[in-house]
Design a protein around this nucleic acid. Structure first.
Lengths: 117, 117
DNA sequence: CTGTATCCTTGGCGATACTG
DNA sequence: CAGTATCGCCAAGGATACAG
C-alpha cells in the first residue's frame, strides 16, 4: 500500500541539484569513513574500531554506498580467513581534501563562537 | 526522567571531531540556505520561495542555527512592514566556497557513475 | 572475519494553526 | 511579513541475532 497523504516523497529536480550532491556525504558516519580511509587501506573490523561506536550494519551500508558512488574501493584478499580491504579512490581522496577545507572552516567558526560567547 | 537503556547519548569526543564539524552543514535545507544566500541578501519569504518546499518552521530553525554558528547574519530593517534580511558572513562565504568544491567533485562522480553503469 | 536480516526507538521534519 | 507552538509521521539508524 502506498498511502500518500498529500504528496510526500516529491523530488523536485530544480532545486535539488545541491541536495543530490550533499547526499553524497550525508548520513551518519559517512564523513568519518572517508576520513579514516584517508589514512590508508583498512579492513572491515579496523574501520569498525576506528569509528568507535558504529554498528556493522551501518558500516556496511555506508561502505556499499560509497563504493557505489565511486568514493571507495573494495578489495577482497583470499587469505586463510578472507579479509576485505577498503581504500579511497582518487576521487575519494579529492573529496576528502574538499571535506578537510569544510572542516577547517567549521573549526575556525567554532573557535570564534567560543570566543564570542 | 532521563531513561537511559544502556548508555545511549554517549558523545565520545575523540572520534567526534569530524562529526562536530559535519554537524555544521547537516540537516535538511542547510546547504540550500547557504547556497541561495550566496547569491546575495534575501528576506525570509524570498528564501522560502527559493527553497521551494521548505516549511517556515524548518527555515527558521536553520537560519537560527546558522546565525548562531556565525555563518549567516540577521538584519532587521524597520520598514513599514518590518522585514528581516539575511546574508552570509565572510566565513559563510568561505564555507560556501568549500561546499562548492565538494559539489563539483560530487557532480564529477555522478557523471562517472552514469558513464560506468 | 565479513557481512545480512529483523526489530525497535528516536528525533528530524512536514503540516497546520496561531501570534506580534 | 516573520516567526512560534503543537502534533504526528516516517525513515535513519542502533541492538541483536544469524549466516557464509
Amino acid at each position: 500500500m502506498v498511502k500518500r497523504r498529500k504528496s510526500k516523497v516529491v523530488p523536485p529536480p530544480s532545486t535539488c541539484l545541491l541536495r543530490e550532491c550533499t547526499r553524497l556525504i550525508s548520513g551518519a558516519w559517512t564523513a568519518d569513513v572517508i576520513w579514516y580511509l584517508h589514512e590508508g587501506e583498512r579492513c572491515f573490523t579496523e574501520l569498525q574500531t576506528d569509528l568507535q561506536g558504529v554498528s556493522a550494519k551501518m558500516l556496511t551500508i555506508r561502505l556499499r554506498k560509497l563504493e557505489q558512488d565511486g568514493v571507495v574501493q573494495r578489495l577482497t584478499k583470499l587469505t586463510a580467513p578472507p579479509t576485505v580491504w577498503y581504500s579511497l579512490t582518487s576521487a575519494g581522496h579529492e573529496l576528502c581534501g574538499a571535506l578537510t577545507n569544510v572542516v577547517e572552516i567549521a573549526q575556525r567558526l567554532k573557535r570564534a563562537q567560543a570566543v564570542g560567547a
